[in-house]
Nucleic acid binder design. Sequence first.
DNA 1: GAGCACTGC
Length: 640
Amino acid sequence: MAQFWKPGTEKPRLLDDGEGGVLFFSSSYSSSSGFGFSSTEKQRQRLPVYKYRTAILYLVETHATTIIVGETGSGKTTQIPQFLKEAGWADGGRVIACTQPRRLAVQAVASRVAEEMGVKLGEEVGYTIRFEDLTNPDVTRVKFLTDGVLLREMMDDPLLTKYSVIMVDEAHERSISTDMLLGLLKKIQRRRPDLRLIISSATIEAKSMSTFFQMSKRRRALEGETFEPKVEPAILSVEGRGFNVQIFYLEEPVSDYVQSAVSTVLSIHEQEPPGDILVFLTGQDDIDAAVQLIVEEGQNDRKRSELIILPLYSGLSRAEQDLIFSPTPRGKRKVVISTNIAETSLTLEGIVYVIDSGFSKQRFYNPITDIESLIVAPISKASARQRTGRAGRIRPGKCYRLYTEEYFINEMPAEGIPEMQRSNLVTCVIQEPMISKMILASGELGCSEEIMTIAAILSIQSIWASSRGAQKELDEARLRFAAAEGDHVTFLNVYKGFLQSNKSSQWCHKNFINYQAMKKVMEVREQLRRIAQRLGIILKSCERDTTAIRKAVTAGFFANACQLEAYSHNGMYKTVRGSQEVYIHPSSVLFRVNPKWVIYHSLVSTDRQYMRNVVTIDPGWLTEIAPHFYQQRQLSHMPH
DNA sequence: GAGCACTGC
């Protein structure tokens, strides 16, 4: 058993005075009395970040980059933009920006800040996320946005000239777009000494962030007499406002963390006072198995009926996810069994006990084979702390780690590998080149209306409704739309039906289509249509000429062509590019159909490499449409 | 016979 941090007391602080640039403020700075202020104002003053107001403003004034380390509950995200505004950083038509990795967070924080400032959202305080721009360029002074949107803005205005301060929040998550943004912002700083950056991070990893933003000696030598901010980043640490969480480790490692998690749930329920339980497992399989086990093992338990067991992962429908947020009835105990979604994206109130398996599914990318795969891998210390923190939001909690303390200390990596090092960066550098090529080709082939629809649907996770417990019905529904040419053409049938139903949610429900996904498809399609129109692509329908459609897909995705192995009995294909063994994904309408030649949209790698979303092609099109790629390749069994 | 989590004109 070990003691976790106790926020607000003796938290270790940063810590480097060597180069003079790293500053440290103690938390003994006292806040002024709230007398005479409104209740909102008093609430603001109670947030831990409030007592650092002067320090933060001083650092931002004097340093090009300020790194703020603050745990959840410190209030940094909502308060710092307001401090900046009050201090005049938005004067003269300038704008203060604050980025978030997730859309939901952008919306939530923006409306909270607008409320605190007593202004209407979309005016002085606004936000921009994809498909939704709630800002007014003339009056918006504090703007919240996803880091992806800011990256896009950079394409039109590379120096981001309208912003005076840019705060990058949740930088410790190291998402691809956050990392890209940080790299580009560093470049902008060289050209814009007036720009200030605030990097906000929840972990002590601030030191490497600081090293990154340290500017070169040469640049520093150029600093003239005119006032310029210090180039060394400042670091400030702000305590959070969580509760103490006691940590328990296993004495011996276990081989089956699902079983171990289940036993822990049942013994907490037997021995511990009321309070909800959150269990972190890796994926749907684990989670469903754990739910099943708890039900079975608890069958003879008189207290079993007090447990409300809820699975949680992104594949669940909106209604199923909403169950998680319903309040726990008196005398009951909620057990939420979740993937990583509950680590950062969703916050559950009322959790007192956390069980951490120590694993999550992570994406890895092999640049040689160009295959991304999802692998169950050990989490980092940073993730483990984040999971633990989920237990201390309403009162002191307990966290049960299903691994040994020795393992945590000596073997668990301090930080996860940044997403940037685990992904194919193509779409990050050039926005969706294959889709773009497909759309351009569709203009010439006269099927741009259809290809727009296909492109929009391919950009959505899945248009099919969640199938828990109704697998057969979903398969049957899918068959009703199935087209012999493959998934892409099947999508057109679904889209057509959706339009004919007048975009009805009941129709979606009846046909196992995800209504939310279809609404998003409409938005993406509209966005694509606007871009295509701007580029002068002729919008035209080919009226069911599936050859034109499949040729357009081939034009974009020629590199993903696969041929069925001549004597394959189990549906094995080989990629033309690298002779990789691949199979049609069971969710495809061509599963078990196994046509001779197909093009896939993406590969997913689990125990096998599966092709998701496949369409049949005529191999002759490959040399016709992409001769530069196929000329020198030897295509065995290629008819001529 | 199968789906970690996000994001984007």
